[in-house]
């Protein structure tokens, strides 16, 4: 399952990629430092080689995560089934959480850092409703660990 990581923070990209690998995630991972780059890569491949999973950061310069989603909106039908998009953000702002819940393209919001349990839930293809609940658990446990 082709996976996109979109984040302007190289540390975050490094961390996410290694966490996935450490949890045994074998599928190819493509990392993008900006939303525009990712979009440029994705759009020509929507039909041929769309990603099955996207981890999207919200806070990025020039085009942020919401901008990326807006740009994808016209192609929603092509993505609908095959691609799950997770917001991966350090933001704890309630606005973002609520906005993510209502967004048709977003499967869930995951608060950084990405932890083992969340990876398992996302990768083991849990149902959408279960997935929606999972990040909250993950976030709580992460904080607990911190």
């Amino acid at each position: 399952m082709l996976t996109y990581l979109i984040d302007d923070d190289p540390v975050s990209l490094f961390l996410t990629e290694h966490m996935l690998r450490l949890e045994g995630f074998m599928a190819p991972i493509l990392a993008f430092a900006g939303a525009e780059e990712a979009l440029a890569h994705l759009l020509p491949r929507l039909a041929t080689n769309p990603p099955g999973l996207i981890f999207l950061d919200l806070n990025m310069p020039v085009m942020d995560g919401w901008g990326f989603l807006d740009a994808l909106a016209p192609h929603a039908s092509a993505l609908q089934d095959g691609c799950r998009i997770y917001l991966l953000t350090s933001s704890l702002a309630l606005v973002d959480t609520e906005k993510a819940r209502d967004h048709a393209l977003v499967h869930g919001i995951i608060h950084k850092p990405l932890d083992e349990e969340t990876i398992r839930a996302v990768v083991l293809k849990k149902t959408r409703t279960q997935l929606a609940a999972a990040p909250a658990v993950g976030a709580r446990s992460s904080r607990g660990e911190a």
Binding site: S12, M19, K112, S142
Partner: peptide, 8 residues
């Protein structure tokens, strides 16, 4: 963001 990174 940096703290989350550090945590991870």
């Amino acid at each position: 963001a940096p703290l989350a990174n550090a945590l991870g």
